[in-house]
């Protein structure tokens, strides 16, 4: 698989079966739970990305953290 700027050598990967069980199941008790995931409208995400000021990172300066 070739992505722009990246080469991913998928054929060299170790292949392992993926567990078929769902992400969460009924009866998981009080452990973390996940709701159903819906697919977004990709155009909305693109619109928001296009609104980002392209110079924002250049101006962003912070103190080193402790």
């Amino acid at each position: 698989m070739i992505l722009k700027g990246f080469e991913i050598r998928g054929q060299e990967r170790i292949q392992r079966p993926t567990p078929q069980e769902p992400f969460t199941r009924p009866g998981d008790g009080d452990g973390p739970k996940a709701p159903n995931v819906k697919r977004p409208d990709p155009s909305d995400l693109l619109k928001r990305m296009r609104r980002v000021d392209p110079d924002q990172a250049r101006r962003y300066r912070q103190r080193s953290g402790e």
Binding site: P32, P35, P40, D41, D44, R58
Partner: peptide
């Protein structure tokens, strides 16, 4: 890099992670 930074913006109207979450594209635990 600005888009990278915007991913982490806590503002629900600006942040890119917030947009993914709003769109239901990210698993929630709480």
């Amino acid at each position: 890099r600005s888009l990278d930074l915007a991913y982490h913006d806590l503002d629900a109207d600006q942040g890119l992670y917030a947009a993914l979450e709003e769109a239901g594209q990210i698993v929630r635990l709480v």
